[in-house]
């Protein structure tokens, strides 16, 4: 048994969103202080999709985040960072060897993992969710040192457990995906990166010609929400409503389905570029996020008692529709801003 000990000088910072937190921490390791909202905004973390025919944990799939690894990949692309993403490693042992080699060269490595078998994870979140990300920055015998942005402190995970979580199965299986940064330019061109990030997010939220993605998906969901009690009964409707709220609030979103983080990004970039229109957009985004919070407060009443709903689903549907309208205004405004 080898007992060599490598622990890199990696600063762990807690974050709302796992992948943008990992990206910002990785960049911080290479000497660029990029905040979490900044990484999130440039890497297009904001997204919405509603896929009623695909069931995840017995409820329709609703996602407030982009596909796994988009945030890291795009922020590296827009900031001109030389990064490597290995999408799939077929042999589990080979993937662990690759991780060891990286650590020996002094490179902290991010990985996509499934949450169910992570031993240090808070037990209330231990459901099957394959789009989680953390960074491995050290090794000590059989134990790997992990920086998981959901947790307050760094954690350790044994070889077997790490292998298990990296090869979790199910929808969006990680397949041992890993990513790291090779080289960072001395000066980051924030202006063009912010412009490219905002443009792509606006495209994804309002311009994709498919009804289930972006603001259109949100409207579709609001119409479906009204039908649920009639179609599935109160019990199931309440569970489905809970699924929307869980995805928006609980699973490491920083609140309101990432809308707060995105608002913080708009504010920060507005201050950086001295752009008053971006600041206005950030204010609108913050208000939309507060509407989301209110939606959660009202919706949670229906989840408390599943059989007898306290609030009318029609009203909830209308509220969601209003949120969609508010969000569309923000994106239309962002679309016109010239950076």
């Amino acid at each position: 048994m080898e007992t060599n000990k490598i622990i890199l000088n990696y600063t762990h910072r807690q974050a709302g969103h796992c992948e943008s937190g990992a990206t910002s921490n990785l960049l911080n390791f290479y000497g660029h202080d990029l905040s979490e909202p900044m990484a999130f905004g440039i890497g297009n973390g904001l997204y919405f999709s509603y896929i009623p025919f695909l069931k995840v944990q017995y409820a329709p799939m609703i996602s407030f985040r982009n596909l796994p690894n988009v945030v890291f990949h795009r922020s590296a692309k827009y900031l001109n960072i030389d990064a490597t993403v290995v999408k799939k490693i077929r042999d589990p042992k080979e993937s662990m060897l690759a991780l060891d080699r990286n650590l020996e060269r002094g490179i902290p490595t991010g990985m996509q993992v499934g949450t169910f078998n992570i031993t240090f994870f808070p037990p209330e979140y231990r459901m099957h969710y394959n789009m989680h990300n953390f960074v491995c920055f050290g090794k000590e015998g059989n134990l790997y040192h992990i920086s998981d942005t959901v947790m307050e402190d760094t954690q350790v995970l044994s070889y077997e457990d790490l292998l298990r979580v990296r090869y979790a199965k199910g929808p969006f299986a990680p397949n041992g995906k890993m990513y790291w940064i090779n080289n960072v330019p001395k000066e980051l061109d924030m202006k063009s990166a912010i412009a490219a990030g905002i443009k792509k997010t606006v495209y994804e939220m309002i311009k994709i010609p498919f009804p289930l993605i972006g603001v259109k998906g949100l409207r579709w969901l609001s119409r479906d929400l009204k039908k649920w009690p009639r179609k599935h009964g109160n019990d199931k409707a309440s569970f489905y409503l809970g699924q929307i709220l869980r995805m928006a609030e609980d699973f490491g979103t920083g609140g309101a389905g990432f809308r707060y983080i995105y608002g913080a990004f708009l504010k920060e970039s507005g201050e950086l570029l001295n752009n008053s229109e971006l600041l206005e957009a950030s204010d609108m985004m913050g208000k939309t996020a507060n509407q989301w919070r209110e939606f959660t407060y009202i919706g949670a009443k229906n989840c408390k008692n599943r059989a007898a709903p306290q609030e009318d689903y029609g009203m909830l549907g209308n509220r969601l529709f209003e949120i969609a309208e508010m969000e569309e205004k923000v994106y239309r405004k962002l679309d016109k801003i010239k950076i």
Partner: peptide
């Protein structure tokens, strides 16, 4: 065992601060 770990949460107040 549930609800023991603290998380980072964002919020937006009336003064326009995240």
């Amino acid at each position: 065992r549930h609800g023991k770990s603290r998380e980072l949460l964002y919020s937006y107040d009336e003064n326009g601060k995240f």
